[in-house]
Design a protein around this nucleic acid. Structure first.
Length: 583
RNA sequence: GGUCCUGUGGUGCAGUUUGGAGUGCACGCCGCCCUGUCAAGGCGGAGGCCGCGGGUUCAAAUCCCGUCAGGACCGCCA
């Protein structure tokens, strides 16, 4: 037997026990007459005491950081006054009787303690060392417990886990596909799945009325702090289910995940907000509802104003920054610049003041506003002396989004603080009209329109809501889903509206449309990103911190050197020829 | 495709604004000393293509141009 215990799990109750522990030397303190090692294993760190004059133990002087040791010894209480209350194992130590060096180590290229912020490129090049560090150990173990909780929650609700293929046909919709050349059919390619979307709908037709999968998804788009080429989604689909059923099932899964990751932190009921309200109140379709500072509509209050910037515009909206009335001129000028950079024509700021018992505002534009208009602004925003008020005017959507961004700039807490899930429902079916006048789907073309809006689909498509919904946590979009169209006639209407000819539809999605001819159940589904939810649970701003072997922003892996060139023979076999680089 | 930030012994930083000898701090590494430390301590030592290339200059870590790498963001991500 290699070991009897994990050293990091030894406690006072083990006193007197003969143990064998294995691990890495996290630190050594060689006093000459006595040597201490901090031995690290997956359970934590335990102190090993070595008396180097004992036979066989003089090698203790030679031992260095990150050597792998097997230590046989006795667990004993630490002497009076040497207990370390900061360590879980601090009450005891392992008195070594024998030490076996299992593996030596060169000096490591960066410290493995968690006090030092190490260059990320260096961390990734030696990810196997980085993984030894406490934050990575914690994050990946947290991730595993989230996976476990999610699976348990899905199993409990009667979902059946089904794997779907990684090598599939490319469809031109959506993100850029990763493609894989076919050897047996040169000139033909597989695509790696952007999501199991079509397969899970086929599973519904196939009678698996509750499917889920921790699905690996791949999209060849530029990387970000919250986006990698490949990522994991909890993907699910339900037959004979409506939007409420899906929201309920997903809520149970994320609440279970939160309970596993953040025990003792109450998630509560997950609120629902319509897309329209999210845009109006937060200026975003992924509202961070952990804090207030909501957008307030001032259009009506200023309907009669003669102030040019507010006159005759689509919308005037404001936010109240509580207590920021003492912001310096350079600070507010910075906010104006920020707003302009975001596309605003300008930004009006007002310091709310108490003038002889009367609340009024101090602002460069105060003189252009009537007394009752200034009063209306203060009243509508419920502003108080000492507050700063920011007002933007212009096209409604843009104005909301600009103020929404300022709201985040000014008030957003660190992402790790608190857990505020919310559902955003009633998304518009179409995002906008394309250059050809055709509506552009906001989700995907299988999304069921809202039944109340169906009659406007031809006359006023942009006003049509869909049965699509997003899940948001602390202002991060975790995922989205929808009720699907399962009736060929409705699907045909949507396709023709989008300008997709029957032949084209058949070429792209023929297998799904065929399947729907043979008794397709009504179904709905969802998918949310595990990397993102785990990152937030872990208090990380960056999903690379919860992925064992992530890619850099330029899509490379400094550890393995991917992507790399392949040999000519490999290309020949695949029927490929590489073009010379563009000059 | 674009904007911005960063790149200095093994590591983390300062130095760059205002050009003047590779100058400094902390950690690590090597050697010696040391019996209760836990970021051990003391003494001594080694270690540099200032990312790379070009330019300006009497002189460049420092200014300019380009390039590479990492990061943040825009575009992109149905």
């Amino acid at each position: 037997m290699m070991r009897t215990h994990r050293g990091g799990e030894l406690r006072a109750e083990h006193e007197g026990t003969d143990v064998v522990v294995c691990g890495w030397v996290a630190n050594r303190r060689d006093h000459g007459g006595v040597i201490f090692f901090d031995l690290r294993d997956s359970g934590g760190v335990v102190q090993v005491v070595v008396d180097p004059v004992r036979p066989g133990l003089d090698l203790g002087h030679r031992v260095r950081g990150e050597w792998v040791l097997r230590v046989q010894g006795t667990v004993r209480p630490r002497p009076e006054g040497t207990v370390n209350v900061d360590m879980p194992t601090g009450a005891i130590e392992v008195a070594a009787d024998a030490i076996e060096v299992l593996s030596e180590s060169e000096p490591v290229p960066f410290p493995l303690d968690d006090r030092t912020e190490v260059d990320e490129n260096l961390r990734l090049r030696h990810r196997y060392l980085d993984l030894r560090r406490d934050p990575m150990q914690r994050n990946l173990r947290l991730r595993a417990s989230v996976n476990r909780a999610v699976r348990a929650a899905m199993d409990e609700q009667g979902f059946c886990e089904v794997e779907t293929p990684m090598l599939i046909a490319s469809t031109p919709e959506g993100a850029r596909d990763f493609v894989v050349p076919s050897r047996l059919k040169p000139g033909h390619f597989y695509a790696l799945p952007q999501s199991p979307q079509l397969f899970k709908q086929l599973l519904m037709v196939g009678g698996f009325d509750r499917y889920y999968q921790l699905a690996r998804c791949l999209r060849d788009e530029d990387l970000r702090a919250d986006r990698q080429f490949e990522f994991i989604q909890l993907d699910l689909e339900m037959s004979f289910a409506d939007q409420d059923d899906v929201l309920d099932a997903v809520t149970r899964a994320v609440v279970a995940a939160a309970a596993a990751a953040r025990p003792g932190e109450e998630v509560g009921t997950v609120p629902r907000i319509t897309w329209h309200d999210a845009m109006e109140r937060y200026g975003s379709d992924k509202p961070d509802i952990r804090f207030g500072m909501e957008l307030v509509d001032l259009t009506d209050a200023l309907a009669a104003t003669e102030f040019r910037a507010f006159h005759g515009v689509d919308a005037v909206k404001g936010i109240r920054v509580a207590g920021a009335g003492d912001a310096s001129r350079s600070t507010v000028d910075g906010l104006v610049d920020r707003a302009k950079q975001l596309g605003a024509a300008g930004l009006v700021w007002m310091r709310v003041r108490d003038v002889d018992g009367r609340i009024d505002v101090e602002s460069p534009v105060a003189k252009f506003l009537a007394d009752d208009e200034r009063a209306a602004i203060v009243a509508t925003l419920q502003a108080e002396p000492g507050d700063l008020v920011l007002i933007a005017a212009g096209p409604r959507r843009a104005t909301c989004q600009i103020l929404g961004q300022l709201r985040l700039d000014l008030g957003r807490p660190p992402v790790s603080e608190g857990l505020a899930f919310c559902w955003v429902v009633d998304f518009p079916l179409f995002e906008a009209l394309g250059d050809d006048g055709r509506p552009i789907p906001a989700h995907h073309p299988f999304t069921m329109p809202h039944p109340d809006d169906l009659d406007r689909i031809d006359t006023d498509p942009l006003s049509v809501r869909s049965q699509a919904y997003d899940l948001v946590l602390n202002g991060w979009e975790l995922g989205s889903g929808s009720v699907r169209i399962h009736r060929p006639d409705v699907q045909q209407r949507i396709f023709s509206l989008l300008g997709i000819e029957p032949e084209e539809a058949h070429a792209k999605f023929g297998f799904l449309l065929d399947a729907f001819r043979f008794g397709a159940p009504p179904h709905a589904g969802f998918a949310f990103g595990l990397d993102r939810i785990v990152a937030i649970f872990a208090g990380e701003e960056n999903i690379r911190e919860v992925i064992a072997f992530p890619k850099t922003q330029s899509g490379g892996d400094p550890l393995t050197g991917a992507p790399s060139v392949v040999g000519p023979q490999q290309l020949v076999e695949l029927g490929l020829r590489v073009l010379p680089p563009k000059t």
